[in-house]
Amino acid sequence: MRVLLLDNRDSFTRNLEHLLVAAAGADVTISAHPQAADVAAQRWDLVVISPGPGRPCDHPGYGPWIDGGTPLLGVCLGMQILNEHFGGTTEPLPGCVHGRAEPVEFLGRTLRVARYHSLHAATVGSGLEVLARTRSGIVMALRHTERPLLGFQFHPESFLTEDGGSLVHSALCLLGLR
């Protein structure tokens, strides 16, 4: 499986790469900018939008990737970029949660997942459905109801996340890649 990992100058991108290789045997290419022509010209089985600093509007250029038809997973900022693409909004998260794990119910299982975010998906874009929330109602996972597009607010690649490999496997199933 050929995976293109689009990096938003984040410090967890390499962890995500190692997780994708370990959990899915993926062949991962990391690209620093979503508009790089040499990566856009190739065919990919999966596109992943990395976490990163700032708000979705600080990272333009993802539209063609989201609309391009290739299955896509957005992590943290990547999920917020996906959500805003469909008209959802991003707001400050009261208190912020950084470097903490908490149990979240996802696809019928409860797993401890790592959270690193100052912002959250306050309203959900059209055509998207929420797959997981925290106990206090913060969106933790969402997907498009008709297209292979999925977002995780939590960080499957963190060492604080319980069984990150199974979360990658679930993502691939939801995206029709397994």
């Binding site: 410090s11 390499r14 790592a114 960080h155 060492f159």
Partner: peptide, 9 residues
């Protein structure tokens, strides 16, 4: 924990 994830990276 944050710095551990950063150093793993």
């Amino acid at each position: 924990s944050m710095i551990v994830d950063l150093l793993r990276n």
